[in-house]
Design a protein around this nucleic acid. Structure first.
Lengths: 266, 266
DNA sequence: ACGCCTTTGTGAACCAATGCACAAAGTCGT
DNA sequence: ACGACTTTGTGCATTGGTTCACAAAGGCGT
């Protein structure tokens, strides 16, 4: 237990310099959600085993994650639910609330704005923007759709630090550039493009098709396993209905492979 | 270059036993998307540097990722775009197409069904389900909304292997159970709950509030850094407007901490 | 035909994350 | 008041992932 000199009343705090491992950060919100559910059901104390089960992780991992925040458990008992909620919230920066701007009020933007229950957990929709005059002015839940011309102004006035991009792919990079220029340094991107940003800007992406493709990979692997391990070289019979494209540069020329099925295009 | 005995014509294939690292799998879809964009713009050949830049990763990582699929580059030149698209697609299992069922036709389900461009890349919406009679029968894009009673039937008839859960949190676990019981082994969950599934079922989650919380953490860290490194113990002045809850079990009793601000609840 | 130049593929060193297993801490029943 | 029992927090070994840096491969110009 390597703790520096610390004041009496908060026995658990880590020295301020401590950096949370990225993997831990990405799990804390999950713990927080499970804890919130427990608090709602009146649970007062929880052991690492119970919480880990609820979050779907190994209990040793959970304890190590929490130990990075400080020493907030009680041996032989577990963790106080409310107190742990507070500590995790604090570690994540949720004790202040964050004004968020959502750009794009199409299907997805609307869905996000309506999340309500989610978005209000430490976050507040400062603005919902769109460029289509036909929907500017309408209301989605509690927020009015404003024109994207106001983007810079709204960001500055509401001190927005987090932007959500819910536009079509084509518009995403331009929107991103404007967000960054206006001072936003955290961006959550739902558009299916890789955003290019300057150093120091934090981008996370949420992408349906990527997730589906990862699932497809595992599904394929599982089904391949079931049908017996593909004995050394029946590889090219896996996909019917698509001629095997010729190998470029095999012994002949490059870019002969134009007639590829290209499963990845629209 | 450790390759076993292999037929002449496909010089790059890896021995069939090769397992792709998970991290690689999660990046392949990104490469695929960038490649598709290049193909569309008529690019024929791409170097690892260019592709890596487009995908926002280090080029060494990109090369190592691709090398797990096989040896499909040409030294001194790069990779043939179409051929690489084909190989990546094949590795991901996208040379067959995957019928997908989406459960929940609320805002989010509708947004997903309308993705069109995305979903059609190797995937096909076999069914869009909802339990609300008011919207059953309506059309979202090309697909009709059907009643969730038909779930089991549709899954079996269309050989659906991938399910997408876009219901409110409360319904998610029940839907998940039904999907699994009907034979679905890959699930993409948009509902804000941790799903409990049997061994062998693959669940991925997409969660707005988790992503936002991770962004908030980094935003907080950055801003804390700018305002000077918090000198050893000004920790408890970080959050105004929220009284520091008492420490449970400090020297007094457990669960005194009931009046916590609880930034994580509705 | 030959050598220069580009770019791949990978060995090896590093770093991050996981999981085991156990000592230390602290509760609770008697 | 004490000892048995529970549960935390963490040292350590291991696994997985990233990055560097370079030899081998192969095209291209002359």
């Amino acid at each position: 237990m390597s703790r520096g000199s610390l004041p009496q009343f908060d026995p658990g705090d880590r020295p301020a310099g401590e950096r949370l491992p990225e993997a831990t950060v990405s799990r804390l919100p999950v713990y927080l959600r499970v804890l919130a559910g427990m608090a709602e059901r009146g649970v007062v104390t929880v052991s690492s085993d119970q919480l880990a089960a609820g979050a779907g992780v190994n209990s040793a991992k959970l304890r190590k994650d929490l130990s990075h925040l400080g020493s907030y458990g009680i041996r032989g008992v577990g963790y106080d639910v409310d107190y742990l909620i507070y500590q995790v919230s604090r570690a994540l920066g949720l004790t202040q609330d964050w004004p968020v701007v959502i750009v794009g009020a199409g299907n997805l933007g609307r869905a996000l704005a309506n999340y309500g229950g989610f978005v209000t957990r430490g976050f507040r929709i400062a603005a919902l923007l769109d460029s289509d005059p036909a929907i500017v002015g309408s209301r989605i839940g509690r927020v009015a759709v404003r024109h994207s011309d106001e983007l810079e102004d709204l960001i500055v006035r509401h001190k927005v630090a987090i932007g959500v991009i819910a536009t079509p792919g084509g518009a995403a990079q331009a929107v991103c550039d404007r967000l960054v220029a206006a001072g936003v340094t955290s961006i959550l991107n739902f558009a299916p493009v890789v955003l290019n940003v300057a150093e120091g800007v934090d981008v996370r992406k949420v992408d349906l098709s990527i997730e589906l493709q990862i699932l497809a990979f595992h599904a394929q692997r599982r089904s391949a396993e079931r049908n017996g391990p593909p004995s050394e070289d029946e590889l090219r019979t896996v996909s019917e209905g698509a001629g095997l494209p010729s190998v470029p540069g095999g012994a002949s020329r490059l870019s002969t492979a134009a007639a590829v099925p290209s499963a990845a295009e629209a």
